[in-house]
Design a protein around this nucleic acid. Sequence first.
DNA 1: ATGAAAGCGCTAACAC
DNA 2: GTGTTAGCGCTTTCAT
Lengths: 345, 345
Amino acid sequence: MATLSEVAQIAGVTTATVSNVLRNPDKVKPSTAKRVKAAIAATGYRPNLMARALSEGKSSMVAIVLPNIINPYYPEFVRIAERVARQRKYFLMVCNTDEQTEIGRAYIKQIAGTLADGVLVLHTGISTSEILELKGGRRSPIVLASEETVVFPDTIPHVVVDFRLAGLIAGRHLLELGHRRIGVIVGQGCDGIQHLRREGFRDALAEAGMSLEEKDVRYILDSVSGGQQGALSLLDADPDLTAIFATNDLLAYGATQALADAGVRVPDDVSIIGITDIQLAQDMRPALTTVALNIEDVARASINLLLDMIEDPEHQPTLVRIPDPRLMVRASTGCVRRKKRLVSA
Amino acid sequence: MATLSEVAQIAGVTTATVSNVLRNPDKVKPSTAKRVKAAIAATGYRPNLMARALSEGKSSMVAIVLPNIINPYYPEFVRIAERVARQRKYFLMVCNTDEQTEIGRAYIKQIAGTLADGVLVLHTGISTSEILELKGGRRSPIVLASEETVVFPDTIPHVVVDFRLAGLIAGRHLLELGHRRIGVIVGQGCDGIQHLRREGFRDALAEAGMSLEEKDVRYILDSVSGGQQGALSLLDADPDLTAIFATNDLLAYGATQALADAGVRVPDDVSIIGITDIQLAQDMRPALTTVALNIEDVARASINLLLDMIEDPEHQPTLVRIPDPRLMVRASTGCVRRKKRLVSA
DNA sequence: ATGAAAGCGCTAACAC
DNA sequence: GTGTTAGCGCTTTCAT
């Protein structure tokens, strides 16, 4: 594999000149530039990015640390982040923690400021203070995105989503459709219980003069099977419930399945609403009514904030707000029916 | 950020010694090791991985280049690959080409042998000869996984899946259930039409004395919406068809939706079978009967082959075969019914 | 067991 | 315009 100095030797110039034709073409005379280019072509030279990184003190790589790439939210996020990163001339390293906080810690500790110029942290359950500590003295921005709770908002840049509003919107929608007996499935990710969405839902109930009772709530791991279990448990406790609010689309998806398996029709017998609006929400049948969290905006804002901080050391830790969640009405919710349904459980 | 030499200075030793306590602990006297460790702790020192990489000529990073991280096959693959890589002390860079061959090319060209010690290429539609060329003279293994067709099998290591057998198994299953009017949806990914699966299906028909007619086949982009279109088109052409074979689970998923939307019941009216066995196949309702391609085995074999080649320069380009596809019977296929169904199209 | 020193491939002053 | 030179932070012989 050819190196800069080999190319230089062949072209009869020094490494500095070769480096310049590659990076500051205007600084070199056309005739020699041509000669150098010929040498580059002849040798098949390609710059060693590690060497360049060491020399520049900048790797042009950013890392994204996330809990579980299987959860469709993350691929959707990664796709956007990668696209933006690529446009801004950065490579993206995806670090999957398999939902183990310990692995996330190890990644941040090893990568931040050495392999990666910055890191984007998503729902890994590592506390803000600890992240600051892992980062150590290194000049390597870390941004948090879409966290359930951020403890030291002033010291760490992050992109916030109004989860509470999302819960409120979901609650209002069900109430407007006439639902009064509503089961709630609250997800729990690596970064904790999705309590803000629950509180938003509670707000909606309060507006209608109702209150949220714990017997109608199930706290469960944020996954398809969690949604299944939650729905079955709710239905078991109250066979007459007419709607289910899940704090996450994946849970809603699982709930839909469980109802289908139990012979309960959606939305004829029971309405279901989720939050997030992942691709699956559109694709499933019945298509899921949900509250969109604007994944694309979050991803775009997060990676841009990170890159801005990398490129401008003066850039202050910022808090970026994402456009408000929006209700996406699809086929899984409908008006309350009088008709008593058949329960095959 | 503290460097090796700062630590060395504080501990009153040289960089060589500090390096040794970190990497060859037995080469250094316990008492000095202790002193050095204290200095490391005091400074919060963490090795600069770029510097180490340049020095060692090895970055401990591998890249995986894939067409579309949104397609659930890839996250499932990545999760396994990342896990194995992590266990073997490598970082994984995920490079999403957004289905653009040009981007794949750029990634390989830039990364192979400089940022990454090796690269795993999945379905990017870049030809074998071109990959060899992009690699240039660099000592950086590239392995191909699960390609539809590999042109120079002797020159490039790859992990092969018996797609033809998968098609055969799917065909036999439908035939055994008594289906004779079968529509076929053939996917087309970045690496071309999934013709091997179609040929396997044709083999199954041949065993039953039948032949595959082009009027029963739809060639379509490998996606959910492709499956929808394909199914509608097939149903339109032959309202009496009793089964659909899709060369991919995502297509089968789309087909299932289209049928649901059209009021056609699965499997009562029409059976559907796919290939791959992604997670979604289990999760959807009705759960999808499919032919499992053993994603985990493919991922594991691919990444291990790549790392083996990185670590052993003598390792020859190998062809690794994956355990045979297996039929997974779930709820989307059933025996042919006499009863004429209602067609609401 | 430890130190000295060269070098990985590149960039960036600064000199000519 | 182009060359010289000094690093970037680490690893690794080779002496001692």
